[in-house]
Design a protein around this nucleic acid. Structure first.
Lengths: 224, 224
DNA sequence: AAAAAAAACAAACGTTTGTTTAATATTTTG
DNA sequence: CAAAATATTAAACAAACGTTTGTTTTTTTT
């Protein structure tokens, strides 16, 4: 495919960039080092020469993504603005970051679940740093304003999942849309998530036909 | 581990149940048929004898999950109730379904992205059926009440991601929480998602400090 | 009980996997 | 230019992969 104009970057960089694309498209395990070497136009042995192992190559990809994501989180969620303002800023920039680095995102998220101890450790390290920011900038203000104590381990995965949903399901969605179009563009995606996160579907103008017990005290009747 | 009381079910069922657990924990590709056979206490050849191939075994797992999920969707989102009422019912039941079938969920979602044509085709089939219901029961009423036309390919992945976030990130979250506890239980998870989806964080009682442009017309200023 | 069908088994099939080695080529440094 | 360091290469490694084979045991049917 991309046989032209790829020889200019260093072999190391070419391996990493190609790896992200292949890992995102086929998954980490489905991608063989020989295929990666062929696609990146390097010798097979160069991969382990530069990265030590296939796993180390993965962790380096994860580092690139999580470092960038953490930066967006800290930048947009810090400050003295109101929570809605900060959230709006954050969602716009985070979705934009996801969109610009969708392959990194997919690798980080979809291979996020499998429990290789070494990888999980690596992710937990980043997770802890993210949770710390979320707790300070989101959970504490939220508790101060509403009285509800939402743990960061609930809200951080939820927020990330919402913003990543577009890219998590994309291969299937693309196949569905090719049969019946109606593509939601990035602006609509961002706008809907922001609007939903701030005001819910009621904020969209949905009438509340029946009992309004939903938003009042949703956890009052669920004692263990 | 589970060497006792496993011999009673049929070999076929034992293979399938063990496969879901292993696929969810280690991923489809990381799980070898020999390991699966050992763990399920069957001969290696029995797997292909009953299921034809490893891939067919996966599609059968996907079928179990998507059939159940589609059932929850159709059951809870149909009817003449108001949208908030239907959503509240749906989220409670869907999260409950996810919780009872978390291994199926993880297999369906995490291996959702990789583009084996045969598997993607299979998922797109289920995706189409789900989208059809979402469009009829959610998107059309939403457009009628609010004027906004949200495509089902936006709202269905978003909703699913929100409800699945708890299980998507669980291995990392578990590791994080083991260091600093504060476990969000299922009730809190369900209640928060419901509350958030219906009323947003403003519905929780968050004060809108600055400009209120967020919920008003979030897509008004984002022309292509 | 005899015949037919289903289930279970051990063993091997040919590939592919990630990784390593040792030799060669290229570039950088003194 | 020589020496040292870095980059690249082809070839081989053992291990694991999914699948298939031929045979034997168990169950069901007649």
């Amino acid at each position: 495919m991309k046989t032209t104009a790829t020889k200019h970057k260093s072999s190391r960089e070419r391996i990493l960039q190609t790896a992200v694309v292949l890992f995102a498209r086929q998954g980490f395990d489905r991608t063989g080092l020989r295929e990666l070497a062929r696609e990146a136009c390097v010798n097979l042995a160069m991969i382990n020469y530069f990265f030590g192992s296939k796993k180390k190559l993965l962790t380096e990809i994860l580092d690139v993504f999580f470092a960038g994501y953490l930066q967006v989180i800290t930048t947009e969620l810090s400050g003295d603005d109101s929570l809605p303002t900060k959230f709006e800023r954050f969602i716009v920039n985070a979705v934009d970051f996801f969109d610009s680095n969708r392959d990194f995102l997919v690798v980080a998220i979809t291979d996020l679940h499998q429990d290789d101890p070494e990888i999980t450790e690596h992710k937990a390290h980043w997770g802890n740093r993210i949770m710390a920011v979320i707790k300070k900038e989101v959970c504490l203000p939220l508790a101060r304003e509403t009285g509800q104590e939402i743990p960061p381990t609930l809200i951080a995965p939820l927020l990330t999942s919402m913003m990543a949903s577009r890219y998590l399901f994309s291969p299937v969605v693309v196949k569905i849309e090719s049969e019946s179009p109606g593509v939601p563009d990035l602006q609509q995606h961002t706008a809907f998530i922001t609007s939903l996160f701030l005001g819910g579907i009621k904020g969209l103008g949905v009438m509340d036909g029946t009992g309004s017990a939903a938003t009042q005290s949703p956890q009052g009747s669920t004692g263990e």
